[in-house]
Structure formats: structure tokens, C-alpha cells
Design a protein around this nucleic acid. Structure first.
Lengths: 124, 124
DNA sequence: GGCATAATTCTATTATTCTTGAAATGTGGA
DNA sequence: TCCACATTTCAAGAATAATAGAATTATGCC
């Protein structure tokens, strides 16, 4: 995860409608929800919904797939976990566990990145 | 954590300079760093630094304390964990563990909020 | 092909955010 | 008290993002 990617992802989530939308998809799981169902659940105009879906999609936080004439959107859990790992990376200089995803004080080979370690800890 | 608080926190992090600043503080741990040291590390103008520190502080993501004529800033780990818990709250409808902080399929008493459960899982 | 539904794209307007330099505040030491 | 240093506040301009409505594309069904 690059700084620019993280900023894009955080910016995508930093908006009331999009945050509600993303959390809705997180709670719905891998199956996701159609655009229409999302719009109905959140009560927003179709054009506005498309705009926000595009932001989240461009940020890599959600995926899109077609089922008949419906477009289904689902949260990308790997991306979400990657973002959280990026925020907590090398937390407290590795000397303490300050966060659920915080790097514990494991002795590491020189050159091995924290990011790689964080990634191996991801599930799904 | 309310939606508005989460949006404020995410918005505070959704900016290249502030994200680098926050991650720097996360890595420095509870002791933190003086404003001057942060400015030197990131190479930004004092006025710009103050602006960004104020954003993060207002969002509740960092704390401030004075030591002599220096102001020390440190990451607020409880706030960071709260934000991540909010994002992953009731993930996949509780039927699966999709994320490190995702609610596992625990049977809950009716009326007990997921937020309370998430909060009890926070450390520090 | 023609129609209805699902969703996106376009365009304009409004609102918010970032940057910079200058001025102001607060703190400790001579 | 006076000075130097650390940091914040202020003000103006430039850039970016959100909203709403109208028009467009894509799909499935008759």
C-alpha cells in the first residue's frame, strides 16, 4: 500500500454517505447488494449513488459484478484489512501492542518489511 | 463512535501530509514528538504543520501536552482502535471473520450493542 | 425490433479544503 | 524586563469535492 493509495481509500471513506454505504456492504458480506437496494437502504438519488460507488470502487474498497440487469457491489475485505494494517504498521516502534493489528515485538530478519508481515496476517 | 465522528477522523487521515504525520506518531508511541521535530521530519512549513496538527487533534486522533517550551504530540491509540472497530463492526453479519477486528459469531443478548462489544475488545 | 427497468455519465453550481506568508502568542533564560 | 525560540492564528487565493437534474447507456423481456 502506497501513501497515495491509502489517502485515496481514506478519502473515499471520509464522507457520510460513503461511510454508511461501505459499512452497509461490510455488514452484508461477500455477496453484497445491488445498486438499487443500496440506494433504497440509504435513501439517496441514483446519480449521487453512482458517484459515491465510483469513488469507493476507484479507491479499491468495493468490487462490482453484474447479475442480470443488476449491478452488485461488495466490500473488498482484503483492501480494508490492508488499509488498517497500513495505519498500525510498526506501531510503537514494535515495542508494544497498542492496537489489535499492531505489530507485536517479533524479532525480524533485517530487510524484511513490516508490510509483508502485516499482509501475511490478513485473513479471507 | 458516531458516523460524524468517524467521518471527521477519516477526513483527518485522508491527506498525504496528515497521514504521514499520524503514522509517524503511531510509530513513535505514547511519548510522541515535539511539533518542531515533526516539522523537521516531514519538511513542511510551521503554519502548515499547525493546521494539520489541529485537524488531527480536532478529530481526536492525537493528543497534545507541553514540555517546557515544546508542544509534544502523540497518537491516541484508543481513538485509532475505535475507528477501526467502527469500520469492521458486525462484519459479514457476524457469520464470518473477514477482518482482524471483525466481530466473530458470538451469541449476544438482545439489546447489547455491537459497539459495546467492540469497545470491550480495545486495549490500552 | 421496441419497451421498461437499472444504473451511469454529464454539466453547472455551491461548498469545502489546502497552501503560503505575515503577524501574534506563549515560554524560558539572561 | 527584554530577547530568542517554538508554535499558533489570520487572511487570501487556488484547487478539489458534493449535489441535483437531465441525458445516455446497457440489459432483459415481449
Amino acid at each position: 500500500m502506497t501513501p497515495a493509495e491509502a489517502v485515496t481509500a481514506l478519502g473515499a471513506l471520509a464522507q457520510e454517505t460513503r461511510l454508511a454505504l461501505f459499512r452497509l456492504l461490510v455488514q452484508k458480506g461477500p455477496q453484497g447488494l445491488s445498486a438499487g437496494a443500496i440506494g433504497e437502504a440509504l435513501g439517496i438519488l441514483p446519480s449521487s449513488l453512482s458517484f459515491h460507488l465510483a469513488q469507493l470502487s476507484h479507491a479499491g474498497l468495493i468490487t462490482q459484478r453484474r447479475l442480470g440487469r443488476h449491478l452488485y457491489y461488495a466490500a473488498d475485505f482484503a483492501a480494508m484489512n490492508g488499509l488498517m494494517a497500513y495505519l498500525t504498521e510498526n506501531c510503537c516502534a514494535g515495542s508494544a501492542v497498542c492496537a489489535p493489528g499492531c505489530s507485536p515485538p517479533i524479532s525480524r530478519t533485517k530487510g524484511e518489511s513490516h508490510e509483508a508481515v502485516s499482509r501475511s496476517r490478513q485473513r479471507r
